[in-house]
Design a protein around this nucleic acid. Structure first.
Lengths: 349, 349
DNA sequence: CTGAAAGCGCTAACAG
DNA sequence: CTGTTAGCGCTTTCAG
């Protein structure tokens, strides 16, 4: 239905190869200015747009890269996605994004789609990298360039960009300790990974390291697991508050991302607590919502757009044939101090 | 690089046409169970995935539909996008989304991309529908099914789904009036439309209608225009507060969407106002963030997912050849009353 | 079931 | 510049 090259050529009264050469601006097109003009005008008149799939089929590339993210409902990933899209656009690539919808099953389905979608390269945020062996065999067999966010796959030739949550987490927890907190909880749950890999998240590990460095206990009951939505965090923390004696209750919670932190905050408020007097809260990602929240959320931030650009640049260089050794770059994090933290209330017994 | 049908057929020792018939589950494939199995296994072994673009080229459809949204950084559109994607998936279609990035120029670019992308149909949220004549000629010439969100294009055969902001806006404003507010401001700015179409947004019109029905004045100075981000709304309202005598200051503001409302709220807080005592705020969209905000935001809500499904169903039926008369369906809105509104503080002069 | 052949829209090489 | 040709990977038809 849409006009084809053939029709444009006919309309302009030129050969199809001439039209092709002009419209794709091939350097060896010797067309004169007048024919050029004639072809361009014919194309415009007909509303011609090259069929990129036919072209892709022919040249062996659809100039598209795939992005896998866990959950687009978490705003941090839409920020990533946009930064990636912008970086790719400059290089002439399109982006197609697949989301895992925060489930392992969804992640597998998304990986499968990505593999089937004829992309030239792949960018991945995994919840559970280990679950995708197929991806790696494909990568090896077909030499499909990939770069990972947060996961490292040694000796694979797969570049990756890492976020070192060490500094930010340390700053966050030590800030809480300095404020006088000693009973600190952590809420996680974004990643629905299998049990055996469950506590591998570096944010959790750093959290516990800092605690023990300061000789603070960390009872199992301070480890709160929830689902990945605000509602999940809300429900989980509500349940915690309802079932915990106020004397034992944590005076601060570190949530593994901002939306979870906001769910915790809302649950605390509905429980009658004042933030930050009765409960200090810190999130991670430093999304705009943390800044604009009516009780501004302290959050561990990192340079999202720069990270996205770096990963994209890695991928693009591989697409252009770069055979350098596997690259791995680490970005640092830092605490952004806002209203949601304060010294713990004096215990009124 | 990726395995082709030919290779699979060879691996399984069958004819290429047989393999095709089996893998696409063509009903007229007379293959025996054993050949079927052989082909499936060969495909798995090689990691075969049909090249959907080659197929699309052949069958004349890429089974893809395009979605145009103003700005994915506004969470309401990611909710829409996901609902649409899910509805399409059931029908065997893929979704490709283009965003205008909240600029008219971006919108034109996005429309252009959509037109060039060989989609089978298009779903659109426009900021400025009138700016895209090309779309309509394309639609007419190529019979490309489209459905619009919020815009109606009479006698075009383009189905649309509308949101009637009348009821929700009325409820919102009358609730404010009932609470005792008489000096109510409105903040808008999402749509960067040309001057002459600027005040056409139905939310604004309803707002003013309700005001005048209650004989309330609406000075031009209560009409606040900002950009489309939280930061924009924040800056705009901060400026308003800084430049307005407290005696003249609005006691309530109706913002055209939730993220703008939250920007206003934060600006008010930073100005030393208490919410809702010193300022009542109402948003629109009823996104999760309004519910979980530490000061929960009252918001005009509507059934997003149902709207998305309806539009998608319209499109799918058109794709299946439905020639019914142009459809138009209207969804209603209602106020969700939360913490951000209260009677105005007694004037302490 | 096989094998051949055509064609979707495009690029690219080549002889005129 | 033209016109032809081949082929990207696939579907589909048709004679064996």
């Amino acid at each position: 239905m849409a006009p084809t090259l053939k029709e444009v050529a006919k309309e302009a009264g030129v050969a199809i190869s001439t039209a092709s050469g002009i419209l794709t601006e091939r350097p060896d097109s010797w067309a004169s200015e007048s024919t050029r003009k004639r072809v361009q005008e014919a194309a415009n008149r007909l509303g011609y747009e090259a069929n990129r799939y036919a072209r892709g089929l022919r040249i062996g590339s659809f100039q598209t890269i795939g992005l896998l993210v866990p959950d687009l409902l978490n705003p941090v990933y839409t920020v990533y996605a946009r930064a990636i899209q912008e970086a790719l656009e400059k290089a002439g690539y399109s982006l197609t994004v697949e989301e895992a919808k925060a489930s392992l099953k969804g992640e597998s389905a998304a990986v499968k789609k990505l593999l089937a979608s004829q992309v030239d390269g792949i960018l991945c945020f995994f919840m559970d990298m280990k679950a995708h062996e197929k991806l790696f065999t494909k990568q090896k067999n077909n030499n499909l360039p990939m770069v990972f966010f947060g996961d490292s796959y040694p000796n694979s030739g797969i570049d990756n960009v890492q976020i070192d949550f060490g500094r930010g987490t340390k700053e966050a927890i030590e800030e809480l300790i300095k404020l006088g907190h000693s009973n600190i909880g952590v809420l996680y749950g974004y990643h629905p990974v299998p049990k055996e890999r469950e506590r591998a998240d570096s944010r959790m590990e750093f959290f516990q390291t800092v605690l023990s460095k300061h000789d603070l206990p960390f009872p199992e009951s301070n480890l709160l697991k929830s689902g990945h939505t605000m509602q999940n965090a809300y429900d989980r923390f509500k349940e915690y508050l309802d079932s915990t004696d106020p004397t034992d209750r944590v005076s601060a919670v570190f949530a593994i991302n901002d939306i979870l932190a906001l769910g915790v905050m809302r649950a605390a408020i509905d429980h009658g607590l004042s933030i930050p007097e009765d409960l200090s809260i810190i999130g991670v990602d430093n999304t705009p919502m943390s800044q604009f929240s009516p009780i501004a959320l302290s959050s561990v931030g990192y340079p999202i757009r720069e990270i996205a650009r770096t990963a994209t640049d890695f991928l693009i260089s591989r697409l252009q044939g770069d055979k350098e050794a596997q690259r791995e770059v680490m970005f640092s994090t830092h605490l952004v101090h806002r209203e949601s933290i304060a010294p713990p209330a004096v215990e009124v017994v």
